[in-house]
Structure formats: C-alpha cells, structure tokens
C-alpha cells in the first residue's frame, strides 16, 4: 500500500480509534444485511426450493436464461464491432482537413450523444418503418447502440490519435507518405493499441445498455428473466419473481466485473510493454460509463 497523503499513518491511539470505527462499521453493515435477510426470510424469499429453480434443468430456467444471455452477448458483440468501425471512421472524419467534413461529422457525433439511447432505439424500430425502412428488433437495438457508442468512441479515438507523438506524424510525412498512409499505417495502429483497455471498458457500457431492448420487446437477458417470471407466475404465483431478477442482475454484474478486470489487465500489459503509452487516457470518463445518455458536451481534454 502506498503511503496515504490525506492522513498520517495512524499512531497507537488513532489505530485504536480506527479499530473501534472498524468494529462499528462492520456491525452496522452486518446489521443491515441481517435486517434485509430477516425481512426476505420473513417473506419466504430464502427457501432453497425457490432458488433451486435457477439451477434445475427440469424447470427449463437455466436453458432459457442461457439463451437470453446469448442474445444479449450477440447484440453487445455485433454492436461493439460495428461501433468500433464506425467510431474510427467518425474520428478520422473529425480530424479531416476539409472543413465541411469536420462540421458534418461533428454535428453527427454531437447529435447522437445528445439523444437518449432509449429514444434512438425507439425511433429506429417504430419511426423508420413509416418511411419504408424495416428493422428487426435485433437490428434496431444494435443500430441504436452503434449510433450512440460510435459517437462516444469517435471522441475517444480522436484523443488517442492526437496522443500519438507529433514527431511521428511529421517523420511519416518526411518519409513521403500521403495523409491516408500516415493515418492508416502510423497513427491508427498505435491509437487502437493504446485504446484497447478503453474499448473493453466500453463493452461493459454496451452490455449494460442492451437491457434497453425492453422498449421494443427484444428478448435479451432482463426481458428473458421477466418472461420466465410471467410464465411461472400463472402456475406458482410470484414465488420465483425475486430469484429470477436477482439471477439476471448477478449475471450482468459478474460478466461486467470480469470485463473490467480484463480491461485493467490489458492496460497493465500495454503500459509495461510500451514506453509511449504513458500519456494515454486509460479510463473511460465517468459519464460515458453511465451508458444510455453520455455527456452532451465533449469530454474534457
């Protein structure tokens, strides 16, 4: 542990106080947990039978949740790949030498960052058909995620491209490369490598946002859990409701924690292997992590 700067390393008296504080803190937390558990138990929510349904193949629940998770991952992965590609194009467009390209691309980016994702998905699914363009629920969801996330990623990529040392660009021009070559052979490869941890972190955001598919009834994980709830409620009352939602939440949290962990791992690897990566932004801005919305103002640079 590094030496804290906000407080002295505690002396004997302070250590005692901290121990007391720790004990009190632990007690409070334990008390809250105990209260919640007692209330849950009082409502019969802790019965083993109720939780067993999540693991009992005969109930079809594990299979159904697995299928729903698969669809969620499909949306997230297809969305991520397309958003990365489109985000790169937008980033390059925003750095273009032609003014009209810059203005056009900037407007697009700002627009898609300013519109709530839910509204975007809704528009793709319900409005486009009125103009003769039909999208399935899958593609409407993916489309909304791609439009929003590519706008966010474009800003991140742009920062990444700009973070490559200016000397490299000048050297590349000095070698007689054309601007396309400089971008594709020199700047982008380095930027993408540096951006890798951020890209993985963005996948967490995207995965969370797939749950917005509820507005167009796409059967993703959360919706899948709800369908199971509805089916079981008819026969068994609401005895599995709480358990199924907890299961969905736990799956999201576990997958996202694993992804965050992977992002940090990759980040450590890139940092140790490359001296040049020192100035790279390695974490997503907090507002981007929130998903759904995203900042309307360009992230501070």
């Amino acid at each position: 542990m590094t030496t804290p700067v906000l407080f002295d390393l505690p002396g004997p008296k302070a250590r005692r106080r901290i121990r007391i504080g720790t004990a009190v803190g632990v007690l409070v937390v334990v008390a809250i947990i105990a209260l919640v558990l007692a209330r849950l138990a009082g409502n019969g929510q802790l019965e083993a039978q109720r939780w067993a349904v999540l693991f009992d193949p005969a109930s079809q629940v594990p299979q159904a949740l697995g299928q729903a998770l698969l669809r969620t991952l499909q949306v997230a992965i297809v969305g991520m790949v397309l958003a990365t590609v489109l985000g790169l194009l937008l980033a390059v467009g925003r750095l273009s030498e032609h003014r009209w390209v810059r203005v056009l691309v900037s407007t697009l980016i700002e627009f898609f960052r300013a519109v709530p994702l839910l509204v975007l998905i809704f528009a793709l699914y319900f409005l486009l058909p009125k103009f003769g363009i039909r999208l399935s629920a899958f593609w409407a969801l993916v489309g909304g995620l791609v439009l929003y996330n590519s706008a966010v990623l474009a800003e991140i990529f742009r920062a990444g491209i700009l973070s490559v040392d200016r000397g490299q660009r000048e050297a590349a021009y000095g070698l007689g490369m054309r601007k396309t070559q400089v971008m594709t052979l020199v700047l982008l490869p380095q930027a993408i490598r540096r951006m890798l941890p951020v890209l993985i972190a963005q996948l967490v955001v995207l995965l969370k946002d797939t749950s917005l598919g509820f507005i167009i009834s796409f059967p993703e994980l959360l919706r899948g859990a709800r369908s199971l709830v509805e089916f079981f409620t008819l026969q068994f009352g609401n005895q599995y409701t709480f358990q199924l939602y907890v299961a969905a939440a736990v799956v999201y949290i576990v997958i996202n924690l694993l992804l965050s962990w992977l992002a940090r791992y990759v980040e450590r690897r890139t940092r140790t292997s490359q001296k040049a990566a020192a100035t790279t932004p390695t974490e997503l801005p907090a507002d981007v992590q929130m998903g759904g919305g995203g900042g309307a103002v360009p992230a501070a640079r």
Binding site: N256, Q289, G291
Partner: peptide, 9 residues
Amino acid sequence: TFRNTPLTV
C-alpha cells in the same frame, strides 16, 4: 455493484 448493473435492473 452499481457501475456494473444496468440502470433498468
């Protein structure tokens, strides 16, 4: 916990 949970959840 909250960072890794969808707001809908």
